[in-house]
Structures are given as C-alpha cells and as structure tokens.
Simulated assay, not measured.
Amino acid sequence: MENIREIFDSIIQLTDEEFSYYLSKLSYKEYKKGEIITKKGSIENYAYYVQKGIVRRFIDKGEGDLTFYFSFEHDFVCAYDSFITQTPCRYMLQALENTSVMRMSWQDVQDLYRQSLKWERIGRILNEKAYLERAEREFSLLAQSPQERYESLFQQNREVIKRVPLKYIASYIGITPQALSRIRKRIF
C-alpha cells in the first residue's frame, strides 16, 4: 500500500484518515496465469491496482488477437471506457502471470469523488497520465517502424521483453512473431 500512497502523495497530500478511507474501499483479488479479468461484452465494475503480475488488454480477432496495452506492478488498469460509461466492454483484460490486484468498485470510486476534491484531482491526474501514454502509443504506431517500436518498448520497459511472451509483444507492435524474430536477430 506504500506504493499507492506515494503515487497519490506525488499528486496531492492526503491525510492518514483520507488514505485509510480509500483503503477501506479496496478488495483483494488473485487471478491465475491466463485467466480473463474482464470479458468482452461485460461491464467493467472495477478499477485495479496491480500488486504483482502482468495484465494485458487485447481484442480477440478469432484467428488471433491484438494486444494493445500491458500493465505491470504498481500500475492502475481497467477497461476504462466501459468503467466510466458503465457500458459493455469491447475488449478483454487478461492476467499474463499469476496476478494479484487491489480493486475498487465503480460505485466506491464515485463515492470518493463526491467525498473530496482531492480524490477528483487524483483521478484527473491519473487519467491524464493514461491519456498521454495512449497518445504516445498511437503516435508510435503511425510514425515509427516496427523495429523502432520494438526498440522503444525495450528502452521504456525492459520487463516487457523478459516477462511477456514474444507473440504478445509482436501483436503489441503490430507485426507477426516471425517478423519480430527477424528484428531481434538484427538488434542482438
């Protein structure tokens, strides 16, 4: 919980009472490797904080899937569009390793926002950060070659390369696993 407190305090100072109230709203959940956390077509009812493990967001295309986001330890994750609109999700969240999360329901998040402007500020700043990450990802898909995207991913988060299967990394950068193997041979 210290990591969550540090993230929040880097945005705005919370009292011990305010943070304790936040903690009282959390529940703990574990997912096994490969387990679906949020199913396509379901309504996202929780926002998650990853304590241990990896979560990926992906679209199931039948013949394969398209991975578009990875979350690691100390990241917040959910199917945010479904979460804020309370409408069915168009993609899925999956645990890539045995994963443990702390989660908060949509209703509890709304209660926090009503309780204090501090919580609204924390929510806004965290969502602005997520937006910037998404904008950077979109830019990379439009402006960078697959090799540049791979190198950038490697520089930003070496854990991805060590812990995520290559087929998901290939999907994330928009190429086949075979093309990724050729890129890796050129680089290493």
Rank of each mutant, 00 (worst) to 15 (best):
E128K: 04
G123N: 05
N98R: 11
M102V: 05
D108P: 04
E136G: 09
L93D: 10
R137E: 07
M92R: 12
L126K: 01
Q110G: 06
W119C: 03
R103M: 13
Y91C: 06
W106N: 15
L93W: 01
L112I: 00
I125H: 01
R134Q: 14
S140A: 10
Y113Q: 06
Q107D: 14
L132W: 08
S116A: 07
D111W: 03
W106C: 12
L93G: 07
S105Q: 08
C89M: 10
Q115C: 06
I122W: 01
L117Q: 12
E97Q: 15
A95M: 09
W106Y: 15
R103H: 10
M92P: 02
Q115N: 12
Y91P: 03
A130L: 11
K129R: 14
E128C: 04
Y131F: 14
R134V: 13
C89K: 01
E128N: 04
R103N: 08
K118H: 08
Y131C: 06
V101Y: 02
T99C: 15
Q110V: 08
Q94E: 15
A135K: 10
L93E: 10
A135H: 06
E120F: 04
V109D: 07
R137F: 13
E97N: 10
I125F: 01
E138H: 07
T99G: 13
Y91A: 10
E133P: 03
S140N: 12
E133W: 09
W119Y: 15
L112R: 05
E120P: 01
E97M: 13
F139K: 14
C89L: 09
R114Y: 03
A135Q: 12
S116G: 03
N98V: 06
W119L: 06
S105C: 07
R124Q: 05
S140W: 01
R137G: 05
K129C: 00
L126C: 00
K129G: 00
Q115M: 15
S116M: 07
M92K: 14
A130S: 14
R134E: 14
M92V: 04
M102I: 10
A135E: 13
L93K: 00
G123R: 00
S140K: 04
Y131I: 06
K118Y: 02
K118G: 02
A130R: 10
E138K: 07
L96R: 07
V101E: 00
S140H: 03
L93I: 04
Y113L: 10
D111K: 11
Q94W: 07
S116T: 02
E128A: 05
L132F: 14
M92D: 08
W106Q: 11
R90K: 10
K118R: 09
M104A: 04
E120H: 06
V109T: 13
M92T: 07
V101D: 02
K129L: 04
G123V: 00
N127L: 11
C89V: 11
I125S: 02
R103C: 09
R124A: 06
Q110T: 07
T99R: 07
R121T: 11
I125K: 03
R121C: 02
L126P: 00
A135W: 00
R137C: 05
Y113D: 04
L93H: 06
L132E: 11
Q107K: 12
Y131E: 11
T99Y: 11
W106S: 13
M102E: 12
Y131P: 02
D108V: 06
L117K: 08
V109R: 12
L96S: 03
Q107G: 11
E128S: 05
E136F: 06
E133K: 14
M102G: 01
R124V: 00
C89N: 13
K129F: 10
S116E: 01
